[in-house]
Design a protein around this nucleic acid. Structure first.
Lengths: 250, 250
DNA sequence: TGTCCATATTGGTCAGGCCAGATTGGAAAG
DNA sequence: CTTTCCAATCTGGCCTGACCAATATGGACA
């Protein structure tokens, strides 16, 4: 009945959870409805009860269903209300654009609230960025942006910034741009970060806002360029492959 | 060994998952470490293997571990990196302040990209807000703000707005402010929403930005007032209770 | 018609088992 | 002594069947 057993990749409970997710999204069940019992579902999907339980736990952790002991599992939402950003397929450029808009404002706010200790901490982070260690530099970069958000003393903003940052890592498209683009994309930008610190230290909201906006704008431009280069290289590789395959013709 | 079996509330897998979470947070394991096998963990916790599997799935969905078939489960993070906003305790005022900053910019952007159809859709939503049905009005309010974010054609912004909105519902402190404040907080604001639509329709970024900023500023002020009223009422109730208790003295 | 209890149902958990693929230690070959 | 390679071992993935306690439910009884 269900097409969940069609594909044969991934763990069983995931496929079943996805199938039920889809059933919820397409209205097969309504809010407050009770799902069939674990035993029934096990029969429907031709799997064991433990597997069904695993799928239900996944749905529960998504906030889609609520399981009442000795009663049943009940629908409490039809779609993953306010789900993690990292679970959706948001492109890297969208993420960066959003960061540019949001973080510019945050930076402007921070400029009005920052104290000397925080300035010092940001300076220390820019030093870390110069570290040869790429991972360390990247961690410092992340911390830099989150620290600025933290200055606003607004945890919602801080959370938002960290979520937008973390979402990038899981972007499938971003995974393609690792290596060169990544290495080149961080190290040289230390001067931009220093400019941001300077603007914050001067307590000038407008300057700080612009410094951040400019920084992320450049990151976008840089990534865009890297993407183009990557696309060209990929195209060339394809041509080469064809040339090898049809050797004589070339 | 582990104190996981101390408390006896909640499902077993949750308690075990929490115990392991804590073990990760306190450094008992490091990133890329391999956890003991499911069988070993089952013994350690004196539970069955299915229960351990459920706990591991919970950790996996948290992005803390990664399970490699036929190899083991490996630590990939020590704490819930960029978790859902709705799972943290962010106060309603922080959320609203963040929305004010972010959505004002988004609205400014949207003003430059909106088309007539979208204007019409927003108008329709303001009509819904006048509905006597409180739930419907609230849903329309939510959709209104998300629709504006959608106009920017940036799913990261759209997601952010919806997350910030949804997070409010789960705020424990917001739950206290239901009823009066909530009812009074939505209905009268239809005119503000109309102003936003008008600004968007005029394609004036600056006006749109200010309209949104003003709107959310008023929401904050209103909620603040409601909170004060509520606090005063609570204080009065307390005094009354004491008065009753120590009757004669009063 | 309304109350109440026996029974079927449901989630929570355990025990044990089979499978296929990854891992690894050590034997055999160089 | 080093390298190669295979088999025993380990690991997660999944199934079957079973017991428990608490909830629902339906029908008997008042």
């Amino acid at each position: 009945m269900s097409p969940a057993t069609t594909r044969t990749e991934g763990r069983l409970y995931e496929r079943i959870a996805n199938d039920i997710r889809q059933a919820l999204a397409t209205g097969r069940y309504g809010v407050s409805d009770r799902l069939p019992s674990e035993r029934d579902l096990a029969q429907q999907y031709s799997v064991s009860r433990p597997t069904i339980r695993e799928a239900i736990i996944a749905l529960e952790l998504d906030g889609l269903v609520e399981v009442r002991t000795n009663s049943g599992v009940y629908v409490i939402a039809l779609q993953p209300h306010g789900g993690k950003l990292t679970e959706t397929d948001v492109g890297p450029f969208e993420l960066l654009e959003a960061r540019r808009i949001f973080e510019a404002e945050i930076c402007g706010l921070a400029a009005q609230m920052i104290d000397d200790e925080q300035v010092a901490r940001l300076r220390a982070l820019t030093v870390d960025m110069e570290s040869g260690d790429l991972l360390r530099a990247e961690a410092a970069d992340r911390e830099f942006h989150i620290e600025i958000a933290r200055i606003t003393q607004n945890s919602a903003m801080e959370k938002t910034v960290s979520m937008l940052w973390d979402a990038r890592m899981k972007s499938p498209q971003y995974a393609l741009l690792t290596g060169k683009a990544r290495a080149a994309g961080i190290a040289p930008r230390v001067s931009e970060h220093r400019r941001i610190v300077a603007a914050l230290a001067s307590r000038n909201a407008e300057t700080a806002r612009e410094a951040m906006r400019d920084h992320l704008g450049r990151v976008i431009a840089h990534l865009l360029e890297a993407t183009e280069v990557e696309a060209i290289e990929r195209a060339r590789a394809e041509v080469d492959a064809k040339r090898r395959r049809f050797g004589a013709i070339g």
